[in-house]
Nucleic acid binder design. Structure first.
Length: 113
DNA sequence: GTACTGACTATTA
DNA sequence: TTAATAGCCAGTA
């Protein structure tokens, strides 16, 4: 399939997540102006090319858990990258209360769309 | 067109 | 806290 404008919005937002912080798929969709389309966020990440160098590891599900198949290469890569940024991962889960990104109004105003 | 699937979520038990 | 469920919406067959 071919990436569309919505995918690009998701990618743009992912690129803005600060190191050491995480967001949920649903949150990404909301920020992109696509409320209720968390699955679209997940699909956008799957479609993303490695050459885009997106910090996709900073995206978790609404429970703070990694949504990739447990034990897979990508899963382990995500855990490693999160820990490298100082994020505490226990059993594939992150405490959203401690690490979830809360964009300020100022940050939201800098969004390119 | 139907049916199934998935890097999702909110609700309920 | 985990698990089942129903709703969700694009993509795929």
């Amino acid at each position: 399939m071919k990436p569309n404008e919505n995918h690009h919005r998701i990618w743009t937002l992912v690129a803005l997540i600060p190191p050491g912080k995480v967001v949920s798929y649903g949150q990404l969709a909301d920020l992109a102006g696509l409320p209720g389309r968390a699955r679209l966020a997940g699909r956008a990440l799957k479609l993303a090319s490695p050459s885009q160098n997106l910090p996709w590891h900073r995206v978790l599900n609404s429970q703070g858990k990694i949504s990739l198949q447990k034990g897979s290469d990508a899963y382990q890569r995500q855990v490693k990258r999160l820990q490298e940024e100082g994020i505490v991962v226990i059993g594939g889960k992150v405490k959203l209360a401690d690490f979830q990104w809360q964009p300020s109004l100022g940050e939201l105003l800098t969004l390119p769309f």
